[in-house]
């Protein structure tokens, strides 16, 4: 095992954790790809499908990155989807209520940029609230984000009265559906965020501090790490990531809803755990998220093609999660004995 680890790609060592976990996960992802290719070669192995998938998974990928951050520090963020939806709802209303009709195209784009900044600000703000509850008031993360999830989703419900909000300008669709140099915009955004986060986690003091906090928050404090500040920044980043996911989601569906993607929370936990994040903190790698979310996407697309319902997907994911955890138990158990 260790030989393989050392012989790995420099890129992977740069991005990954060097764990045998990652290798195992990559094999699984490869296996799902092969499986789907074999089962529905005509529809799965097409360029069209690859393109389509590349537009679908980034939003889950980004949410999973946010979840990973929270779990790294030993916490969890159940309010991610709530923040994403609230942010996109507010953006939608901004377009509907504040953007003048008949605006020339280039000014529309400017307006959109402004709205994007608004979304990021909202995400940071919501994340700040989460961070304060958790780091300053010392509310357990699961309870704090359970509460804020209700508040954010509830606020969105109040604003929309449960209905979907439409009225995004045409140009907005570019975020969720456009391409640059042949690569879909959502995918580009995800990859940029992924690389950025990987860089921060592996190569900056901040990232090291996060891992240390997740490993032993008390010792981190004794080592002079400003735990409270780091936690608040972590949850703020999570909020910003969630709002970016919200932008992509609302652009793809061309609407903003208070309860879109509620299953994403559980899925993002699944992706994070699959991706090698230790639920009790201290271990995790960004590239694992990429590989894990691909696995889920392959399964998801393949199932749709096989005409399995969405529900079958949920069933498989549940089993998948359990299976991975059990396998982890055996592999880490063995390495512990050594």
């Amino acid at each position: 095992m260790s030989k393989r680890r050392e012989g790995g790609l420099e890129l992977r060592r740069f991005l990954g954790s060097g764990d045998s976990n990652l290798l195992q996960l990559s094999l699984i992802t490869l296996a799902t790809f092969i499986l789907m290719s074999v089962l529905v070669p005509d529809t799965f192995l097409t360029v069209r499908n690859m393109r389509s998938m590349s537009f679908q998974f980034p939003e889950l990928g980004i949410l999973s990155l946010a979840m990973m951050l929270a779990m790294l520090t030993g916490g969890i963020d159940l309010s991610l989807v709530g923040m994403a939806n609230l942010s996109s709802v507010i953006c939608a209303f901004t377009f509907v209520k504040l953007m003048p009709k008949d605006l020339p195209s280039d000014q529309v784009v400017l307006f959109i940029v402004g709205v994007v900044i608004l979304a990021l600000t909202l995400g940071l703000l919501c994340g700040l609230i989460n961070g304060i509850l958790i780091a300053t008031l010392h509310i357990p993360p699961i309870l704090a984000t359970l509460g804020t999830m209700q508040v954010y989703t509830g606020a969105a419900i109040v604003m929309t009265r449960g209905a979907a909000v439409i009225g995004f300008p045409e140009q907005y669709a570019f975020i969720g559906n456009g391409s640059i140099a042949g690569v879909g915009v959502p995918l580009l955004i995800f990859l940029v965020l992924l690389l950025g986060l990987a860089l921060i986690l592996r190569r900056t003091a901040f990232g090291m501090h996060l891992v240390l906090i997740g490993s032993n928050a008390k010792a981190a404090r004794f080592a002079g790490i400003k735990v409270r500040r780091h936690l608040i920044l972590t949850y703020m980043t999570g909020g910003a990531l969630a709002s970016i996911a919200g932008l992509i989601m609302s652009s793809r569906t061309n609407a903003a809803k208070a309860d879109y993607g509620t299953s994403y929370i559980l899925q993002s936990i699944l992706v994070a755990v699959l991706g090698g994040v230790n639920p009790s903190g201290g271990r995790g790698a960004a590239v694992g998220i990429l590989v894990a979310v691909l696995a889920l996407q392959f399964l998801s697309s393949g199932f749709s093609m096989l005409r399995y319902s969405n529900f079958a997907k949920e069933f498989v994911w549940g089993l998948f999660l359990l299976l991975i955890m059990i396998v982890n138990y055996f592999t880490s158990g063995e390495s512990r004995e050594k």
Binding site: I142, L266, I269, L270, V273, P279, S280, Y308, S309, F311, A312, K313, E314, F315, V316, W317, G318, L319, L321, L322, M325, I326, Y329
Partner: peptide
């Protein structure tokens, strides 16, 4: 398997829900 309760019940809950709706009926 000494798994975390949150993760286990997340898995079984999703699996059961999925199973019900996929294979028993909607």
């Amino acid at each position: 398997f000494q798994l975390a309760p949150l993760i286990v019940t997340l898995g079984t809950g999703s699996a059961v829900t999925g199973f019900l709706r996929a294979f028993v009926g909607t």
